[in-house]
Design a protein around this nucleic acid. Sequence first.
DNA 1: CGTGAAAAGCACCCGAC
DNA 2: GTCGGGTGCTTTTCACG
Lengths: 169, 169
Amino acid sequence: MSDKLDIDQIDRKILDVLQRDTNQSIADIGSKVGLSQTPCWKRIQRLERLGIIQKRVALLDASKLDLSVTAFVTISVGDHSEPALQRFRTEASRFPEVLDIHRMAGEHDYILRVVLPTVNAYDTFYRKLIDTVSVPLKKVTSHFAIESVKATTALPIIAAPERRLEAAE
Amino acid sequence: MSDKLDIDQIDRKILDVLQRDTNQSIADIGSKVGLSQTPCWKRIQRLERLGIIQKRVALLDASKLDLSVTAFVTISVGDHSEPALQRFRTEASRFPEVLDIHRMAGEHDYILRVVLPTVNAYDTFYRKLIDTVSVPLKKVTSHFAIESVKATTALPIIAAPERRLEAAE
DNA sequence: CGTGAAAAGCACCCGAC
DNA sequence: GTCGGGTGCTTTTCACG
């Protein structure tokens, strides 16, 4: 009824292919990982059943949707009681502009990644956030990203690809 | 030959559905946004052609893949000349552990989001990074995430859903 | 934009090897 | 694990209103 969580190298290859592009037939994926349709399909089913494949989604181009401002907000809360923390989390999570919330070790309690159309909108968001969480925030600092150098959702699951020696050197 | 970048409310609904789950038939999506198959399909094609839908991917569960450590690394580079910056970017981008690189305004030059199996692995990564970029780094600070409170790839594209009044208040 | 429908491809599920 | 095959859903493409 339940599977062990054994993931071999072929499973990892399948995952790596899928986390980069799900627009491929199972036969295609199979040939990329050295498997024929049937077993490849079975493995994918299993990986989905195990929850290792969480979901399949479309990634959109933020800049083409008027969402050019990314900000990281570091927050130190003033009240560390459980109910206060819980309230902070659920309230902050409600904002669709807040894509990620990480609880941190050390200096800050939380880091939020926020995406918005303009810096102006950030100001509005910022006030609404402080208002809504109804928890005293000790320190809130905003850091704005100007440019995205790299952005991927693909996890490093293949045994770190050996860096090839540059041919041109 | 080319389309204007006009996205109406129905397009946004389609995008919102797709950025949460691509495992649905076009008929399903259509019914969710109030469209029948054919026009819904045509809109999706257009959104793909325009590059607003960048790609379709599988999202994996990092914790089930032995990738429980997330770190944010803030970096200030010592040499701001173009070739040095360029070298830093391309070299840092090569690391599969580095999921995101943002160029920042203000205090830090860059923020990296790094995913790794253990804190031990972070140490190895850290040294390799400093070694590889071969650019003097003025200041490198590591911030570790202990817990993920929220994590989504879904952009806030629907006109901010009005916060409903809580019924229980 | 809608309907209806046809063609092709694919996911999905066999059983045999 | 492989292969071949079959069924039904879906995508993709029509014609027509």
